[in-house]
Nucleic acid binder design. Structure first.
Lengths: 217, 217
DNA sequence: CTCCAGTCTGAGCGGTGTTCAGATTATGAA
DNA sequence: TTCATAATCTGAACACCGCTCAGACTGGAG
């Protein structure tokens, strides 16, 4: 960023009255705050301070706090969709079930790489999707990558398998981000990344079912 | 409830100076508030008002807001453990994989029956488990039901399967509670409960793997 | 009965979301 | 170019929040 303004005595100062790109900077400052101090630290006043702007300024770009968080959530779903699309479709020689594992792994990897976005994406009480339909649309697009993949899998009940895959990726990502997986790995005296990899491998084997005994080796 | 005091003009009045069972009533009022107005409505002041007590009173029972939410989370894990234990072990004639489906179903059912508790249980930034180890212990006890079940399943990698089962139950519960499952069911023009049941059935079939071709019919 | 520890009150501090009148600046039409 | 209008930003204001604390109250041990 640094479009306009400089750090002076811990407070940002601007030369111009108008900020120039306040909307983007508010989003970036929020994501940064979530990652470093947790979502509780994200207040519009704090974010405004971070951007070197008065407490009322953000309200010209976001109707309220929920609108800011909604924007972050929607952007997060867009990024997730990109990642999921990148995971499927590549490596054309591999099987569909490998795609499933790659997609699940991409889901978890996204949560770890963009924790700031992820922590807001599945908090309806924060982002209020009923007031901000863009979040729902972006979320649907991400889910569509999963359902499309499952459709091509040729299973008996694509809807059920799609939901299952989603739940699996989401649950794994949540447990990872909440530190519960790392906690369990410590209790079991094993490496968290290894445990995660083994769980993902388990998913692949699980999704071979349907007609498991006729599957090619 | 109604141990002491009565609703007068929208505000609770007490006859005695001491409340009698303030701690319990604060917890119950909080859970009620989460279920009706969302977790954002739970402030110590509001909960105190709800119990007909001054703003400072709760601090004699809970060190801070996180301590109150921790108590709710810990209680929630206890209830979840009970439910999971009830799901496994019953119906002695059925198979282990049936147990898996029943446990996963119990997990989701718990989230739907106790949404107030569930919404707090997996929010480390709210309940601050590092400051309140009781939450972690209660959570470990719940997870142990899953890992014990998986151990008796005789799979190759019990840890990975245990994590997978946890993630699946948790993901399914989260998506259900966030309304995303219902949303998807509407888009697919199907019944949410039916979709959930089908996904749970999918889980059962998935967990038959390990050596699926040698499994007894 | 006395005393004390635990409970509750109510004021107070700094921070928060949100609103609003007014100051400042960008934009585009004449 | 000029100039009106729209967009942006300021800073004060209100109500609410978490949390602290001195003091009022009371149940129960001795």
């Amino acid at each position: 960023m640094e479009v306009n303004g400089a750090e002076v005595n811990g407070v940002r100062k601007r030369e111009t009255y108008h900020h120039g790109s306040l909307r983007e900077e508010l989003v970036e400052a929020s994501v940064r705050l979530i990652e470093t101090e947790g979502i509780g630290a994200v207040s519009l006043r704090r974010v405004a301070r971070e951007a070197g702007v008065s407490p009322g300024a953000p309200y010209h770009h976001f109707a309220d706090r929920a609108a800011l968080l909604s924007a972050i959530a929607a952007r997060g779903f867009d990024l997730l969709t990109e990642d999921l699309l990148g995971a499927v479709g590549t490596s054309p020689g591999t099987s569909r079930t490998d795609d499933v594992v790659r997609v699940a792994a991409a889901y978890v990897a996204f949560a770890r790489r963009q924790p700031g976005h992820f922590q807001v994406m599945f908090r309806p009480e924060l982002s209020q999707p009923e007031k901000h339909p863009a979040v729902q649309e972006a979320g649907d697009a991400a889910l569509k990558v999963l359902t499309d993949l499952v459709d091509r899998l040729g299973v008996a009940d694509p809807q059920a398998v799609g939901i299952t895959l989603w739940a699996l990726g989401h649950g794994l990502a949540s447990l990872t981000l909440d530190g519960l997986l790392a906690l369990k790995a410590e209790a079991w005296d094993t490496d968290p990344d290894d445990l995660l990899a083994r769980a993902l491998g388990q998913i692949g084997r699980s999704f071979d079912v349907g007609d498991p005994c006729t599957a090619a080796p």
